[in-house]
Structure formats: C-alpha cells, structure tokens
Amino acid sequence: MQAAWITDFFADRVIHLDETAVVKDMHQLSASYDRFRMSAKDLAHGGDRVQERQTRATVVKQVAMERDDESLLIAVGNSQDREAFNVLFHRFGSKIFALGMKITRNEQLANDLVQEAMLIIWQKAPLYDLDKGSAQTWIFTLVRNRCFDILRKLKRQPDGISADDIYAETELELSVDPEQQQAAEIQLEQIQQYFGQLPAPQQQVIEYVFMRDLTHQEAAQQLNIPLGTLKSRLRLALSKLRDFIGVEQ
C-alpha cells in the first residue's frame, strides 16, 4: 500500500535525465567511492574484510554525523553528496513529520510532507548559500511553504498562487528603471530650480512633507500651523511648481 503510493508520488515527478547528467552522476559516485575507500584504508589498517567494511561504513557515517547542517547542505548542493543528504534526512525527517502533524493532524499528509520536503531540499540545495542564513532556517521556510500549499489544497482554494510566490525573496522589484529614473532626475532638477521662487511658507511646507517625508498631520504639528492651512499651502505650492514646469516644456 505504502510502496505503491510512493511509486505514484514519483510517477508524476520523473524528469528524464540527459546522458551527460547521468555520466556526471556516475563520475561523482565513483569519486566519492574512491574517497570512501581511502579514508577507510587510512583508519582501519587492515583486519578481515567484513570488519573492514563495517568500520568503513561507521567512519563515513560518523564523519557525516559530526558536520553541521550548513556544510551538509552545501555538500548536497555542490556535489550531490548522498551521505550528507542521508544525515539531513535523519536530523530533520521526524521534525518535519511533527510539524506536518501539528498543522494537518493527518498522518498521511504529514508523511507526504516529509517526502515532498526532502525532495525539494535535494532539488533546491544548489540554491542554498551561507548568505541565506542558517540551514535550519532555510529548511524551515521551505517546509513552511509546503505546509501552506498543502493546507490550501486541503481547503480546495483556487489555484494560481503558491507559497513560493508569497514568500519569494524580495529583489526590490519596485525599483525604478534607469530611463524613468533619469527623467525623474531631470524633472527634480527643474523643480529644485523653481522651488527657490516660491514664497518661504510654501517652501517650508514642501520641505516638511516631501523632503522630510512627514505626514500632513506631523508636518502641521511641527510647523505649528493648522492642518487646513498646511494643505492649502501645499496645494498652492504644487500647482505653482506644475505651472513652472509646464511653461518650461
């Protein structure tokens, strides 16, 4: 039952590897096997074959167990290190399950979550770097995002938006494009030029609201004038500036 379900789970996730990727994987595998043998040789100093194999396995495991989450995750991302991934699974698997139980109160869903989350950790590991903070926070946010999506699916929420859209890293997408910026700078220069021609009270109001970035209320308080006065001065000043620029153009 469970095994069949796992097959289903991966059926729609099969992505065909191209040949070069497979070859690369094989290289990686044989390289890590060589490393594995070398370290075992150094540490085990002979003994019979069975014992040697056991020691070898224990050593590799212990080396991996002692590494911190960050270096494990980086090893998974940089060199598809399966041993490192295994250690991460043992460190985080049951915690992911517990979180899944807390959120969904459903064992099957919590199991799904573990598998989905571990798959995504594997797939996205190359995107992790130390700038993104600790590995546990990175894994936590990834698991949280899957939980969010699972809950949405459970409630049959409309498609079209996912946790990854909501919790995307902000890249300051609201930054102004260079052309617009240039146009704005030219206009700003003009405005500054005409700003000096405004009567002092109007200059002051512009300064408080636009340059010091105060709300109307705050500006009025600081200038010790009624809010209405501030607003009418502001309106007057702005329409004059607009006129100035309009005349120029």
Partner: peptide, 24 residues
C-alpha cells in the same frame, strides 16, 4: 518530536528515489 515520528523503514527506497532526481 517524540515517539510518533515517521516510519523511517522506507527511507532507503525514498532516499534512492529522491537522490536520483535532478537538482535545480
């Protein structure tokens, strides 16, 4: 997480399946 962790008996199959997937 206490006693009710996931059954990790399946973990070898799972690991193989996962690590055979391409990475981003």
């Amino acid at each position: 997480p206490g006693a009710d962790g996931p059954q990790l008996s399946e973990s070898n199959i799972l690991m193989d399946r996962i690590t055979s997937q391409p990475q981003v």
